[in-house]
Write a protein that binds this DNA or RNA. Structure first.
Lengths: 194, 194, 194, 194
DNA sequence: CATGAATGAGGATTCATTCAT
DNA sequence: TATGAATGAATCCTCATTCAT
């Protein structure tokens, strides 16, 4: 246990420090030395776990994205109706974005910035498949508008990022009522209006 | 003409170079020397127009944001119905985001990053008032859902940023049909369903 | 009058600004632009009057040094006794160093710093001749110790610089009594003890 | 041994290089890169030992001043008579100023220039106490003139700086005879004439 | 004479990365 | 594995000086 666990702990500490510091200052304004200090290791130690700074953020991105999708699809039951399935996933995602704020902020920055390798970006997208499958089923069943997945994501999922960022900045507060309203808007925008 | 115009031209060239380079590499990965080179001036010249690098991006942000809102509300007629008014504004915004891609990318990066002064950010938000007024009217008339403006923006306007970025990255192409679909989704998400 | 006088005024303003700024910040920490601003001229104008920055301080040094010696020997009567002559000169010098504080500070900085051309330094020393002549006479008459002029200057004149600087720094205040004491010490140190 | 000693050596090399280069060119005309080169380290290494350039000279000043006073009061015997004590100290100081010429030059530049922090300047003065104590005793015993310590210092100690600088500049040479003469002048200027 | 805009060269400082231990 | 010291290569910014007007 001891040795391996210690290694894992260090790696995790580095990833966590990276997220927090990049959130507050941006990628290039975050020196390796600060990351090291926050993770309580020597700068040189970072290079035992990561090839270089780019690799550090790439891997951090991939891991956070994986956590995000894992959280989103946890307990997801493919036998649910499309609407129920979507609601489940949407609320898991909302939960993540609003509770695991630091992680979500980090993803938003990566996704709107030339900070991440294209390869890592692709790697990060992979895990959304269950949602895309659900939408495919929904379109077949005539429940979801027959739109590109990009459009569906843009209108039903992405708005949460905007809300999360503005909540983090203190611009406004997202309570339970808001959340339900948000969900209704999301669903309205992609469901087929009868 | 000569002198003043030349000054204005130089300043504009600097702002433009900043946008392009920051889009491609990010704020901190864009050296002043490169900006200068692209604008065909000496690095020292930048400091005749801007206090420092931070001031350069702040002012660039404010200017681009102003252009954006100016474009959005050009020819906007407050006597239009809420729906028609919204459609007009929405399509102007879509136009801007998809045609003035560089500018829109730059704004997206600024808005999702700790790259801009809080003061400048506030300054940038100011000009959205006509849209907020329209929504207020819409809510009174029972046409727009009685939601926070943040929610309305998140669902009806912000998705365009996501689409723009992914189009820029070549992930997918937004044609006329898509655009109409996108508009329908936007409107669906904020209009009161009867 | 007009044109020539205006030129002279500008030159003087530049010299004065140089003294004040160099006193407060040192030679290399004083930009030409600041000197220009304080003298109410354009930076480019400086180069109409001086070859470059080094020339500006060199000339300033020479001029201030000339003022200093002119002041020191004003109304000096070579027919006075050695002791009376020395007292006269010493008190003029003391007057200058304590009243024309800025000028004296500037000289002290120049004299203890590699800031001035060797040539200009030599130029500046020239005008002390009357004092040296007095000392030569004093030595012949057996009134002044038969020491090198450097020693005589070091002990009878130079201490005033130290006092002036410390007074400027607020370390202590030199009143009339002090001054008389200082004179007695100066004279004690170079006169032949009987 | 190894590591710590190496660190100390590096620091000392930096301090020494600073003294030599500042003596020859002045503070602001001495680039950090040159200091680094002369000390055989990388420019970045300086910042492991000093916060910035100002800190480098401040600390150098404090250290040289400490060396100066340490040297001045080495083997000083407080049971000596005032005259013998003063002679001892004066000759130690003269020794220092003339043999450790570089150090003394550096102090002279610092003391006549706005180059050093006020705080560091105060720090540097502290260690003169034994001399001041001796003077106090001398005044009580009626051997030393009842003057401000500033005056006593100005007339008995400070002239050595002037002589040292002019010797360094090759203006004149201070041999044993001169030195004895200088001492006599110093003593004459502060002792009570009987 | 006078200027303000422009600049190239240079300086302080930072930082990702390496290396001896 | 882990480290802290060391560094070369940048980067931001300043400034003496020039030049078109």
């Amino acid at each position: 246990m001891a040795k391996l666990q210690k290694s894992i702990d260090k790696r995790n500490a580095l990833v966590k420090a990276t997220i927090e510091l990049v959130n507050n200052s941006g990628f290039h304004a975050t020196p390796m030395s600060k990351i090291a200090k926050m993770a309580n290791v020597s700068p040189a130690t970072i290079y035992l776990y990561f090839i270089n700074k780019q690799d550090l953020v790439n891997q951090t991105y991939i891991e956070v994205k994986a956590e995000y999708t894992k959280y989103a699809f946890e307990n997801f039951d493919t036998t649910l109706s499309v609407e129920a399935g979507f609601e489940h996933i949407w609320k898991r995602i909302a939960d993540f974005k609003l509770k695991e704020c630091e992680n979500a902020m980090f993803l938003a920055q990566c996704d709107n910035t030339p900070m991440i390798d294209e390869v890592s970006r692709q790697e990060g997208i992979k895990h959304l498949q269950p949602l895309l499958d659900l939408w495919t089923r929904g379109k077949k069943e005539g429940i979801i508008k027959p739109l590109s997945n990009y459009l569906l994501y843009a209108y039903s999922i992405n708005p949460l990022s905007f809300l999360m960022i503005n909540q983090k900045r203190g611009a406004f507060q997202l309570d339970k009522t808001h959340l339900e309203e948000a969900y209704q808007s999301a669903w309205s925008s992609i469901k087929v209006c009868k």
